[in-house]
Amino acid sequence: MTPPRRRLAVAGATLTLAVLTTACGALGQAVDCNTAANDAAKIATEWSSTVTKDAANGDAVEAASKTAETKTKELAGKYDGEVAAALNDLADGFGSIKGGDLSSITEFSGKVNGFTSKITAACS
């Protein structure tokens, strides 16, 4: 191979490697984001089930909210950037629920879809 062809071959190989690395990184991010969104949805579903079952028990609601807050913060610690920020916002929402305050539960329940959408948007 002549020197110009060799340079073109090296440049082509470098470009191919860069594209493949970027594609794998994007794929990895998509998988991570999907996992983050699914895990957050599981936490929200567990919280919702507990609150629905024990809505009259303020202590149970507060305990479920604290557990969901802790789990969501742990999940946020696995990510960075907008995904972590969205998960931390969700955790703060769980943390805002105190006792059997039905108005805070209702308000937060209305915001859960917004938090999930924010997580999904951070992944795109």
Results as ranks from 00 to 15, higher is better:
residue 1 M to F: 06
residue 3 P to N: 03
residue 5 R to G: 10
residue 5 R to P: 03
residue 8 L to Y: 07
residue 8 L to E: 11
residue 9 A to E: 00
residue 15 L to S: 13
residue 16 T to G: 12
residue 18 A to R: 09
residue 18 A to V: 15
residue 21 T to V: 15
residue 22 T to G: 07
residue 22 T to S: 08
residue 25 G to W: 08
residue 29 Q to R: 14
residue 29 Q to C: 01
residue 31 V to I: 15
residue 36 A to P: 11
residue 42 K to M: 14
residue 43 I to K: 00
residue 45 T to E: 12
residue 45 T to Q: 10
residue 47 W to N: 02
residue 48 S to Y: 10
residue 49 S to R: 06
residue 51 V to F: 03
residue 51 V to R: 07
residue 52 T to M: 12
residue 55 A to C: 13
residue 59 D to A: 15
residue 61 V to A: 05
residue 61 V to H: 08
residue 62 E to W: 14
residue 63 A to H: 14
residue 64 A to R: 14
residue 66 K to N: 14
residue 74 E to W: 14
residue 76 A to H: 13
residue 79 Y to L: 07
residue 79 Y to F: 04
residue 80 D to L: 00
residue 80 D to P: 13
residue 81 G to C: 12
residue 81 G to I: 05
residue 82 E to Y: 10
residue 83 V to S: 09
residue 84 A to L: 01
residue 84 A to Y: 10
residue 86 A to M: 01
residue 87 L to T: 10
residue 91 A to E: 08
residue 93 G to P: 09
residue 94 F to W: 05
residue 97 I to Q: 02
residue 98 K to Q: 08
residue 100 G to T: 02
residue 101 D to F: 10
residue 102 L to P: 05
residue 107 E to W: 06
residue 109 S to P: 07
residue 110 G to H: 08
residue 117 S to P: 00
residue 118 K to D: 14
residue 119 I to W: 04
residue 120 T to A: 14
residue 122 A to E: 04
residue 122 A to R: 14
residue 124 S to W: 02
